[in-house]
Design a protein around this nucleic acid. Structure first.
Length: 1113
RNA sequence: GCGCGGGUGGCUUAGUCGGUUAGAGCACCCGGCUGAUAACCGGGAGGUCGCAGGUUCAAGUCCUGCCUCGCGCACCA
């Protein structure tokens, strides 16, 4: 070697030709990454990479805004990896990919957080504290973890602009939301309604269906069968409910008019098996659906009468709680009503109806003219006057009281039958919606609310959804499509404080005005002031939040004062506006949004299907009548190593820094991408990250180090030297062909969203093909100190392979490959061109300037030679076969064989030297007389045989397989005279396999060549000669001495003095002794003959009965 | 309850049109190789392919039912 190792190390700092690689040091992945981050920061690498493509066609990415009031976890890293990798990939392809960051800052999660901190657990408490101060606290709280998010984002190398992000609380952002709402208002999509909605008394607000979907939990609760006593007859109608708290509100019973009901008389007292409260006396009569008698009744009864439900309609019954609901002017209260939605799947076939606490109940009540009266207050407590034992109590705590009231001897109304009004209680388990923030059960509750008429645009939603490229496709067709087909009007108002205020003002007589901008607000305020209505000032920068906006009183066209509807918006509405509100559209002039709509790519967790994926589409459909995004990657859930969902409450959230600080972000990202398809749930296994680091990144680094160290030693410069690929050795042409094949497949997998497959294959290529074969086989080529064409070939090849690999890896794991790429080429990898693609075929490539850009961005891959690839595969299999043969024969690896025979197969002449070395044989011979080492086996081809042999196929197959004389049978087959069990066997019915004859040290490998399977055998000569024994001994001695050198931590160049004693050894040839000296860099090397006594400090080892002792000095 | 996606050695996973020996990696054991790395190579042990039926000459693969996990929908009295 022409330079000492230490000299190379010292060269790192010195200036030199940009393209001439430096040597590589030991790998410290974490330091490599953090140093590079610093360098990126200084170079402004992200902005530069975007700017670099400013002439390219735009590829529009939209960031789904996270909330920064929670700590980021590993699942956020996953989503950000997939966002980042697509953006980086598209950038390398030549697209101009801007990435604006965003923050979601409004809404319930923020409020709850602040409420907990300030101990303001009710709306009253908040108002007492002051809405102003409360909202300020929210505004501050939003940024609690912003630094943590920023650090995580930077450390994982998610390139997104966090310096000018969109923020949903910004006035500009809110103003755009107002504008959007006004578009809906003007189109008649926005309306005020009174509906039964899932309502949380703790947070004091109702929820939209997508929020409710977040909180279903299975609960077991008491359900009750209640007797409703008819007024004109001594009989009761049985009804069932799972929500006893709604019973005081009962004002009607619904029956199916066509359902058959039965009137039954209790025949005898209930048996011992009766559990729980309630009951009935002998002789008492109850009415219920005939089909449900078995399920419901626990007494023996006589059926007295059967009739359809219509016969019951109009009958009146006694209220359960006499004073709970005032009758008002209702004539239908406490009567039986007909409803076609009543079923007999459970319950009694009679539905207890409490107008205000069920959607069907409410609609029926409105239709039938039942009194619409709340027995429950907004805080979830029974209203005063409901019942002395219930008034002022939280309804969910009253199940037991209500049950005992009903089952009391006189019933809850004090007038019931002796046995009470309760027939039976039964625990019932079902999924029930709970508040996604506080975990309390939601109450279905009739209230005023604002809605977006999504049902009016259902068809458009479905049409737009059809045009979205979903990954995986079944999310779009299935889950999301199903959601859209069942679309409900979007309840967008919240009885809350911290959010985008609903910009609608309303007068006492119901006239309404929707304000769509600050300017409009100012104009309206001015108008009101002019009419004498007092108003606070409304400057250009008026804060578009509560309570400021609540302060404005506007003027209706009729001259009445209008007050703002006291709601804020569902915070999902905010993020649904992101595609335009991020640009302050349309107040910015509209260009930015028009140029970036619809969005090319979004990516979030699958849990956003009902969330962001939906609200984006909902808003763009109602506001623009257009689709929102063209491609949507929906990511699977992240589970912990046990397969449990990661959640704060479970405490099983993985901290990304555990891995950033150990294996680095490269390995973390690569692991996440290779762990499975992006849309499948991922079990995050810390061990897997480590494995990825050890396999993928250490290997890649060592390949690079191998190249860079010698390139630096030799002053290799890829730009000033050339090496025609056509003239390079097979090994080089092989790895380059593999590179081309792998790169093309990689790209195709990317296009198909199969990132996991792409990366698994690439990793396999780097580890197996590049490191374990190409580099291993090339090591000696670079040891050669003299300049040579062969060495140059190898260096160019390594250079090309590494450069392309860097570019392929870069979008997924951007650190190490940037360091490598820079050292190899002087250029950052993130401004390099994607190595795969065809000019002009990239989507968006319409403008001329773009075509040129695309063409430039399309690098050339080396030529593919598939025949060479398959030949090399065979060579590698033969090398492995050789090792197997030796182990079977008990011949140690370092003892050479005189010769090896290759039997059959393609010409491997160019690889004979390589094989001789791998197999440790003196020479490789090609055996053309196949029968010398091989015999034939026949195996049945079921596909061909089955149609002919039918049921006998197994017998025929066995006969073929087990024939005593396969050669003879083959001859018959070929002659057309082979018949087994009456079936004529043709050549296509069998597969002819050649395997090694027994009695040889041999093995046979199989492989596919041009759709045919061929068998190639390898035979090794196991005979020993004195020359072979001597050579083998020299090899073993050398290996031991080298190990000793390594143990002594000697410099590679250092020379040693070597003494060797042999006992019971073969005679050593002088040439072999010289070889030992040369290989071990022994200046002095003494071989003591057999039986000399070794020095006292000599180490010894045994090999095949020989004892070798040696000293290294 | 309905729908979607899973269930393959201890763990992670591949498995094409159904074709007879279910393939890798990690971990484990034995051996080899190495101035090549946490590497590499060979071998071994480890599998009722969730269960039960069915179709078929042949089922991990197709059909039916069930169990189980995850997700979603509907949950309403």
């Amino acid at each position: 070697m022409n330079k000492l190792w230490s000299e190379v190390q010292n060269e790192f700092a010195g200036g030199r030709n940009m393209a001439q690689p430096n040597g590589a040091g030991e790998l410290n992945a974490v330091k490599l990454e953090t140093d590079l981050l610093e360098q990126w920061k200084q170079e402004n690498a992200f902005a530069s990479s975007v700017q670099h493509r400013s002439n390219g066609a735009p590829f529009i990415f939209l960031e789904g805004p996270p909330t920064a009031n929670g700590k980021p976890g590993i699942h956020h890293v996953v989503a950000r990896t997939y966002k980042d990798l697509v953006c980086r990939w598209k950038t390398m392809e030549g697209f101009h990919v801007e990435r604006k960051g965003g923050w979601d800052t409004h809404g319930l999660p923020v409020e709850i957080e602040v409420q907990k901190r300030l101990d303001l657990m009710s709306n009253e408490a908040i108002e007492q504290f002051g809405m102003d101060a409360f909202n300020q606290a929210c505004r501050d709280s939003v940024w609690t973890y912003e630094a943590a998010w920023r650090e995580m984002t930077e450390r994982m190398a998610y390139w997104v602009d966090l310096d000018e992000p969109y923020v949903t609380l910004d006035n500009n952002y809110v103003e755009s939301c107002w504008w959007a709402l006004k578009q809906m208002f003007d189109k008649g999509f926005l309306y005020r309604g009174h509906k039964v909605l899932p309502y949380c008394p703790q947070t004091g607000t109702s929820y939209s269906s997508h929020e409710v979907a977040l909180g279903y939990k299975e609960v077991e609760e008491p359900s009750v069968y209640v007797k409703f006593k008819l007024t004109d007859e001594d009989a009761s109608i049985l009804a069932w409910t799972t929500t006893p708290w709604t019973l005081p509100g009962n004002v009607g019973l619904a029956v199916g008019p066509d359902i058959t009901y039965a009137r039954c008389r209790i025949k005898e007292a209930a048996g011992e098996g009766w559990i729980g409260a309630g009951g009935a006396n002998v002789g008492e009569e109850v009415i219920l659906a005939k089909d449900l008698m078995k399920e419901v009744l626990r007494h023996h009864v006589d059926i007295i009468e059967e009739f359809p439900g219509s016969h019951l309609v109009g009958r009146s019954y006694e209220p359960l709680f006499t004073d709970a609901v005032p009758r008002g002017d209702s004539s239908t209260a406490w009567t039986v009503l007909a409803a076609d939605w009543v079923t007999t799947t459970d319950g009694t076939g009679v539905v207890h109806t409490a107008v205000m606490y069920g959607e069907d109940d409410y609609n029926l009540g409105m239709e039938a003219g039942l009194p619409a009266y709340h027995t429950v207050e907004m805080n979830g407590q029974f209203r005063a006057g409901t019942h002395p034992e219930l008034d002022g109590k939280y309804v969910k705590d009253c199940d037991a009281s209500i049950i005992s009231l009903l089952s009391a001897p006189n019933g809850s109304n004090g007038a019931g039958p002796e046995s009470g009004l309760l027939y039976r209680e039964k625990n019932y388990s079902h999924d029930y919606p709970h508040c996604w923030r506080t975990d309390h059960p939601l109450l279905y509750y009739a209230m005023d609310s604002w809605f977006v008429r999504m049902t009016a645009v259902k068809e458009r939603l479905l049409e737009f959804n059809d045009q979205v490229e979903w990954a995986p496709d079944w999310v779009g067709e299935g889950r999301f499509g199903e959601w859209l087909r069942n679309v409900k009007d979007w309840a967008i108002s919240r009885e809350r404080y911290w959010g985008t205020p609903l910009p609608v003002w309303r007068s006492a007589n119901g006239q309404m005005k929707c304000v769509g901008s600050i300017a409009e607000l100012q104009a309206e305020v001015a108008k009101a002031v002019a009419a004498g209505i007092e108003n606070p000032p409304c400057p250009d920068d008026v804060d578009l939040h509560r309570p400021i906006v609540d302060g404005f009183t506007l003027l209706s066209d009729e001259g009445e004062p209008m007050h703002r509807e006291p709601f804020v918006m569902d915070c999902w509405f905010d993020s649904g506006c992101a595609s335009f509100a991020q640009w302050h559209h349309p107040f910015d002039g509209g260009e930015r949004f028009n140029a970036s709509s619809p969005v090319d790519y979004i990516c979030e967790g699958v849990d956003q299907t009902r969330g962001w994926f939906y609200t984006l589409l909902a808003v763009s459909t109602t506001v623009f009548d257009s689709m929102a995004y063209k491609r949507c990657l929906s990511l699977g859930l992240i589970l912990d190593a046990e397969g449990k969902k990661m959640s704060k409450s479970r405490g099983n959230i993985v901290d990304p820094w555990d891995h950033f600080n150990r294996e680095g972000a490269d390995a973390t990202r690569w692991y996440m991408v290779t762990a499975g398809a992006p849309w499948n749930p991922m079990k995050f296994d810390a061990n897997g990250v480590r494995e990825t680091y050890a396999k993928m990144f250490l290997t890649m680094w060592n390949v690079y180090k191998f190249h860079a160290d010698y390139a630096a030693l030799d002053g290799f410069d890829p730009e000033t030297t050339t090496s025609d690929i056509a003239t390079r050795p097979e090994l080089d042409r092989w790895i380059l062909s593999r590179l081309a094949t792998v790169a093309k497949n990689y790209h195709e997998s990317f296009v198909d969203w199969q990132f996991h497959k792409a990366c698994r294959d690439l990793e396999d290529f780097i580890v197996n093909d590049v490191s374990n074969w190409y580099v291993r086989r090339s090591r000696r080529r670079l040891w050669d100190e003299a300049e040579s064409g062969d060495k140059l070939s190898c260096q160019h090849t390594l250079h090309e392979v590494l450069m392309t690999v860097c570019r392929l890896v870069a979008p997924v794991s951007p650190f190490m490959v940037d360091v490598i790429h820079r050292n190899l080429t002087g250029r950052p990898v993130h401004e390099a061109n994607w190595p795969v693609g065809v000019p002009g075929t990239l989507e968006g490539a319409t403008a001329d300037s773009w075509d040129q850009e695309a063409a430039k961005a399309t690098a050339q891959l080396p030529p593919q030679d598939l025949a060479l690839e398959s030949t090399m595969e065979l060579v590698r299999e033969l090398a492995e076969a050789g090792r197997r043969i030796r182990i079977d024969a008990g011949r140690r690896q370092r003892l050479p064989c005189a010769q090896g025979w290759i039997v059959a197969g393609p010409d491997l002449l160019p690889f004979h030297d390589l094989l001789a070395e791998e197999l440790n044989v003196e020479s490789i011979l090609v055996e053309t007389d196949l029968d010398r080492f091989q015999r034939i086996e026949l195996s049945p081809n079921f596909r061909a045989l089955a149609p002919k042999a039918r049921a006998q196929v197994n017998d025929v197959a066995n006969a073929i397989k087990n024939t005593e004389d396969p050669e003879g049978m083959l001859a018959q087959i070929q002659a057309g005279t082979a018949e087994v069990l009456g079936v004529l066997i043709e050549e296509s019915d069998v597969e002819i396999k050649r395997v090694e004859r027994s009695g040889f040290a041999a093995d046979t490998v199989e492989m596919e060549v041009n759709e045919n399977t061929i068998q190639v055998s390898l035979v090794l000569d196991m005979n020993d000669t004195p020359a072979l024994l001597s050579k083998g001994m020299a090899r073993d001695i050398t290996r031991r001495v080298q190990a000793k050198r390594k143990a002594l931590d000697l410099e590679i160049e250092a020379t040693i003095d070597l003494e060797i004693w042999l006992a019971n050894a073969p005679e050593m040839m002088a040439a072999d002794e010289d070889w030992v000296a040369h290989e071990t860099r022994a200046a002095g090397c003494v071989f003591h003959p057999n039986d000399a006594t070794p020095a006292g400090d000599a180490e010894s080892f045994d090999v095949d009965g020989t004892t070798v002792s040696f000293t290294v000095k």
